[in-house]
Design a protein around this nucleic acid. Structure first.
Lengths: 230, 230
DNA sequence: AATTTTTAATGATCTATATCATCACTCCAA
DNA sequence: TTGGAGTGATGATATAGATCATTAAAAATT
């Protein structure tokens, strides 16, 4: 991790909805105090339980967010990608991180003191509104994942995971990622072995193709049906 | 369900943190448009998937909130009690309810148009702050439940449920509730039969006592140990 | 008081999925 | 070139927990 040279906040204002409501003066306030960071694949950006001082905004790369349980079970609860900040619920509550963020690939991020953002929420009602909208969408996503994890069994959960990755994370159909089978398993609340096995049945049934790190959904209606039937 | 006569908003301002930052003028704005409702035990306050127009604030009674999956599996994701409003994430996103709210006992609630609250968020930064804090705490709770549901097995999950009920919902140790075994199961992500069985082993081991609708945690350290060990 | 409905309790069985063990393959470092 | 170290793939086995079936008890309704 090292501080690197980078472009202005204005660029982020253009790419990310959440910053659209900020004027140049407000952007300047962020500009002066932000720290640009670089992370290699696999590096921890912040860890569950640690104190949270900063808002993290991903400018390039991809980050996975996961909850760590006792022993070493993990549950991936989402991803952060350019250009969006990671909503850290502890920032307003106990100043602790409640999940861990790890770079999946080479990633750059801006760190901004939590106070600055919280001040913008107070002074710019438009920004506060987008902020709450973002948190709300986040919550809705959590409800959906919870529902999938607790109500469905393995094929249904893996379907949800694949659909989620294709439509929400990579936004393309043959999508290539460097997610391992272990990652897919942690997204779907199952073991690596189970993940490998369902993926194989999906392949055998011509629902998906999966070579190396590229996955293609060949039969989306079928996948959706499996998701629906749990 | 019927509209009934009731006390002023000022009372709620006194009891609930979230309304503390509102001045008399703002309370008046709420006062004039709110509708007071009465629900009998078992009645639906709002249902998953239905459009959401109003913020719901519970003034007396107790409400359970749950996600409905396909078939008729449910997952209880929390409770609402006096005096607090139910955070409805759809209000800022898709104007839909993402979970169902049902009165567990005789309950009264105030309904306030979502617009009014959203306006208060815009005009009163102190209120916006408490609002975000509340949502954040909500998210943290969701992460904790998710972690419990996906990482722990039955005894651990039931321990979490009992500890949660005693410390967060009823705030007393021998607590009496009209939650059924089915409800306890839906809180813990298991079947009714499994819930009955763990509760029996807990009773046999002297960890809890459970008669009729009263449950007492007799050995909290042991229950916490079970929770920790999954 | 009688009857129907809901809830609780418990045993028997089944199955989805975890666990364990092994092997092949790739990639990187020594 | 040779070993790890990480990942993927598969089979064998074990088991936690669901499902099914039944009875008992309590609550609600007639």
């Amino acid at each position: 991790m090292s501080k690197i040279h980078d472009i202005k906040c204005l660029h982020c204002k253009q790419s990310s909805e959440i910053f659209a409501s900020l004027d140049s003066d407000e952007l300047e306030r962020i500009e002066v105090c932000r720290v640009n960071m670089h992370y290699n694949a696999g590096e921890i950006i912040f860890k569950q339980g640690s104190p949270c001082y900063d808002f993290v905004c991903i400018t390039t790369g991809l980050v996975k967010l996961f909850i760590e349980g006792d022993d070493d079970r993990r549950l991936i609860i989402g991803f952060a990608k350019p250009v969006d900040y990671i909503f850290v619920p502890g920032a307003y509550v106990d100043k602790r991180h409640h999940f861990t963020a790890v770079a999946l690939e080479e990633t750059t991020a801006c760190l901004v003191e939590a106070d600055i953002i919280q001040n913008l929420v107070k002074t710019n009602s438009q920004f506060a509104n987008s902020f709450i909208r973002k948190i709300s969408a986040n919550s809705i996503g959590l409800y959906e994942q919870m529902s999938s994890l607790t109500h469905k069994q393995i094929p249904g959960r893996m379907s949800d995971t694949l659909i989620y990755l294709s439509t929400k994370v990579y936004n393309s159909n043959p999508f290539s990622s460097n997610l391992t089978r272990q990652d897919l398993a942690e997204l779907s609340g199952m073991t690596k072995e189970s993940a490998i096995r369902v993926l194989k049945t999906f392949k055998d049934d011509g629902i998906i193709s999966a070579n190396a790190n590229q996955i293609e959904i060949l039969n989306m209606p079928m996948l959706e049906a499996i998701s629906r039937n749990g």
